[in-house]
């Protein structure tokens, strides 16, 4: 089976999810070709165990993100068969367009994949799962932190192809993030605050804890809607980000179904809430019935002890 992976990159570097894409491809018995946009992350990709070949796709289009242009370049560089990308915003865009160019189906946000090609993906924000089979070629994006990553120690051959596409999107102004903090989409540990934090200033307690843990700080929609200081980029849930970290700590969040939609697949969930009836406790692995005012200082001290 021929599999081409669209590497997920972060600036000039390879995003760690790329190893997970390779892990999934090798579990299907393939030794995939990895395409790197503008050559970003090509050396790192060649070092992932199981990779057959790395192709740096180099063209003018890769200086701006334009899913149409990128898809055109990748489409020309990729072989037939199965295209795999990450279920990130850019990954979904590019992979959907490659599929449309080839008139093959696209299945996004896959959480299980097996020969056939049979795939499972969440629907209704995780309230149900759908399983489908595609006999022919198809394009797929995989949810991050779901597939075991391939290890290092690979030494795949690398090549460069010149390939570009028409860029139709023009960047007028780049706006730097208000803070240099880690984004919830990239974090392995997330601490989120809800309306129960009482004021945006109290998020400082969450930031302090996140600094200790190397975590990102998220928020419920009620927090985002109530306080201007809490930007939508922090929102987790149905109309915010879907996250899948190893540890999700919900503080002063009731656990409305739309919030759970964005975080219920987190590996471990800790909830701190003063209301023992709060629905967040139904999904929490470890629930602490307490005000955050009492619980957070102790949490900070205990974490400081073990790190």
């Amino acid at each position: 089976m021929e599999i081409t992976i669209i590497a997920e990159t972060q600036g000039d570097n390879l995003h760690p999810v790329t190893s997970q894409l390779v892990g999934a491809a090798t579990s299907l018995g393939a030794s995939p070709t990895v395409l790197c946009a503008g050559g970003a992350g090509a050396d790192a990709a060649a070092g992932i165990a199981g990779v057959g070949k790395v192709l740096s796709v180099v063209g003018d289009c890769f200086s701006t993100f334009d899913g149409g242009a990128w898809a055109a370049a990748f489409d020309a560089a990729a072989g037939t068969g199965i295209i795999i990308g990450a279920a990130s915003a850019q990954g979904r865009d590019v992979v959907a367009r490659i599929a449309a160019r080839r008139s093959i189906p696209v299945v996004q946000d896959v959480v299980a994949i097996s020969q056939g090609l049979t795939m499972t993906h969440p629907i209704y924000s995780g309230k149900a799962m759908q399983e489908v089979t595609v006999g022919g070629d198809c394009a797929v994006t995989l949810r991050s932190n779901t597939f075991p990553p391939a290890g290092d120690g690979g030494s795949a051959e690398s090549a460069t192809v010149q390939q570009s596409g028409d860029v139709k999107i023009a960047v007028q102004e780049a706006i730097a993030k208000a803070s240099a903090r880690l984004d919830v989409s990239d974090a392995d540990i997330i601490i989120s605050g809800g309306r129960g934090m009482g004021s945006p200033d109290n998020f400082e307690h969450l930031y302090a804890l996140s600094d200790k843990l190397g975590a990102a700080v998220g928020a419920s929609r009620a927090a985002v809607d109530t306080w201007d200081e809490i930007p939508h980029s922090m929102q987790v849930g149905q109309t915010g980000k879907t996250v899948n970290p190893s540890l999700y700590i919900a503080v002063g969040i009731s656990g409305a179904i739309q919030h759970l939609a964005g975080m219920r697949t987190s590996k471990y969930i800790v909830a701190i809430n003063k209301d023992p009836e709060a629905p967040i406790f139904k999904v929490a692995d470890y629930g602490i019935v307490s005000t955050w005012e009492e619980a957070l200082p102790i949490l900070g001290d205990e974490i400081a002890k073990i790190l």
């Binding site: 149409g68 979904r92 590019v94 959907a96 449309a100 996004q108 759908q130």
Partner: peptide
Amino acid sequence: RNQGSTGPGIAE
């Protein structure tokens, strides 16, 4: 369906 394919696909 939560897929996010429709907009980019139509554009293509």
